[in-house]
Computed example of a mutant assay.
Amino acid sequence: MAQWVRGYVLHSRPFQDNKLLLDIFTQELGLIRGVFRRNKKEARVTPGPFLFYECFVSGRGELKTIQKVEASGAAAQLSGTSLYSAFYIHEIMERLLPFHLPLPELFQLYQWLLQGFITGLPLAPILRRFEAGLFHELGNEVPLAATSRGEPLQPQQIYQLDGQHGLRPYFGEQPKVKPLIFVEGAVANAYVAGLWSDPLVLLMGKELHRIWLDQLLGKPINARKLLPQQPYQGERLWQVPLFRYPVIGVN
């Protein structure tokens, strides 16, 4: 089957003579991998990231043949932390996305993310928003919407998050199994609502998504080494990060 697809190159690498192996996140087919032969006049031209391409692909197997790659528009000029953040996003997409599964909502979210990089939006909120969307699209979202029994969260109750069983109320006992985090119900509700402008939600999202990705991938994320390293310095309970809103005193 041969067709035109539109998308972005996540990764390229040499593959036999003047061929390239391209991983492309497409609107029509999701993530695809294909072999692209460069002609002699363009032997040094490599389809790169952050540029929207139209590609003509063929083949019924997992490895496609990419017969044409035509750029549409100009490539985004990223540098510094924005560039490293994009590398980080590409790596987790490559490692988590299945091949040939169309994900139109994630494709739109990726375009929004890229535009955010280009226009200089604050990086932390858009990265956390994209990670949460990626988890949702893959059916691996962090289970903070309700307890493991399906009960709604009480705003002032502290819960412990278990990677396999979800949220359980915490009543002060030492946990038999170390939880991923402790979280107040109000903070969990704000996370589920996508309140990325909330500094505490943003802080929890960074710590929690790092742990969640490590569980999903099983191996370190190489691109993470390029980003600023800021270990969690906030409140802890039983040496586990605790996220709760400060109690406002009454005068």
Results as ranks from 00 to 15, higher is better:
residue 2 A to Q: 14
residue 3 Q to A: 04
residue 4 W to N: 07
residue 9 V to A: 05
residue 9 V to N: 06
residue 11 H to L: 05
residue 13 R to H: 13
residue 15 F to S: 12
residue 16 Q to M: 03
residue 18 N to C: 13
residue 21 L to A: 12
residue 21 L to G: 11
residue 22 L to W: 15
residue 22 L to S: 10
residue 23 D to E: 13
residue 23 D to A: 15
residue 24 I to K: 04
residue 25 F to S: 04
residue 30 G to P: 03
residue 30 G to N: 02
residue 31 L to D: 03
residue 31 L to I: 06
residue 33 R to W: 02
residue 34 G to I: 08
residue 35 V to I: 12
residue 37 R to G: 04
residue 37 R to T: 14
residue 41 K to A: 14
residue 42 E to T: 15
residue 45 V to E: 09
residue 48 G to M: 14
residue 49 P to E: 10
residue 52 F to H: 15
residue 53 Y to S: 09
residue 54 E to G: 11
residue 54 E to I: 10
residue 57 V to T: 03
residue 61 G to C: 00
residue 63 L to Q: 05
residue 67 Q to H: 14
residue 70 E to M: 12
residue 71 A to V: 13
residue 71 A to S: 15
residue 77 Q to H: 14
residue 78 L to S: 05
residue 78 L to A: 02
residue 79 S to F: 06
residue 80 G to L: 01
residue 82 S to M: 01
residue 83 L to Y: 09
residue 83 L to S: 02
residue 86 A to F: 14
residue 91 E to N: 15
residue 92 I to L: 13
residue 92 I to K: 08
residue 93 M to A: 11
residue 94 E to G: 15
residue 96 L to I: 06
residue 98 P to V: 07
residue 99 F to I: 04
residue 101 L to P: 00
residue 101 L to T: 08
residue 102 P to G: 04
residue 103 L to V: 00
residue 104 P to A: 01
residue 104 P to I: 06
residue 106 L to K: 03
residue 107 F to H: 15
residue 112 W to T: 15
residue 112 W to N: 14
residue 114 L to R: 15
residue 115 Q to P: 01
residue 116 G to F: 07
residue 117 F to A: 01
residue 118 I to H: 05
residue 119 T to P: 00
residue 122 P to M: 12
residue 122 P to C: 11
residue 123 L to E: 10
residue 123 L to Y: 10
residue 123 L to R: 11
residue 126 I to T: 09
residue 128 R to T: 07
residue 129 R to L: 09
residue 130 F to E: 08
residue 132 A to G: 03
residue 134 L to S: 07
residue 136 H to I: 06
residue 137 E to F: 00
residue 139 G to Y: 09
residue 140 N to L: 10
residue 141 E to I: 07
residue 144 L to F: 00
residue 147 T to Q: 01
residue 149 R to N: 04
residue 149 R to A: 08
residue 151 E to Y: 08
residue 152 P to N: 06
residue 152 P to K: 08
residue 153 L to I: 10
residue 158 I to K: 03
residue 159 Y to V: 00
residue 160 Q to R: 12
residue 161 L to M: 01
residue 162 D to S: 10
residue 163 G to D: 03
residue 165 H to Q: 13
residue 167 L to Y: 01
residue 167 L to R: 07
residue 170 Y to D: 02
residue 172 G to E: 05
residue 173 E to A: 09
residue 173 E to Q: 12
residue 176 K to C: 01
residue 177 V to Q: 11
residue 178 K to N: 06
residue 178 K to M: 03
residue 179 P to L: 00
residue 180 L to N: 05
residue 181 I to R: 09
residue 181 I to W: 03
residue 182 F to R: 07
residue 183 V to M: 04
residue 186 A to L: 03
residue 190 A to W: 04
residue 191 Y to I: 12
residue 193 A to V: 08
residue 194 G to S: 07
residue 195 L to N: 09
residue 196 W to T: 13
residue 198 D to P: 02
residue 201 V to D: 01
residue 201 V to I: 04
residue 201 V to M: 08
residue 203 L to W: 02
residue 203 L to M: 05
residue 207 E to W: 01
residue 208 L to W: 04
residue 208 L to D: 03
residue 212 W to F: 12
residue 218 G to L: 08
residue 218 G to S: 10
residue 220 P to N: 13
residue 221 I to T: 11
residue 222 N to G: 08
residue 224 R to D: 15
residue 225 K to C: 04
residue 226 L to M: 13
residue 227 L to A: 05
residue 229 Q to I: 13
residue 229 Q to F: 13
residue 232 Y to F: 11
residue 233 Q to A: 12
residue 240 V to Y: 04
residue 241 P to A: 07
residue 244 R to L: 00
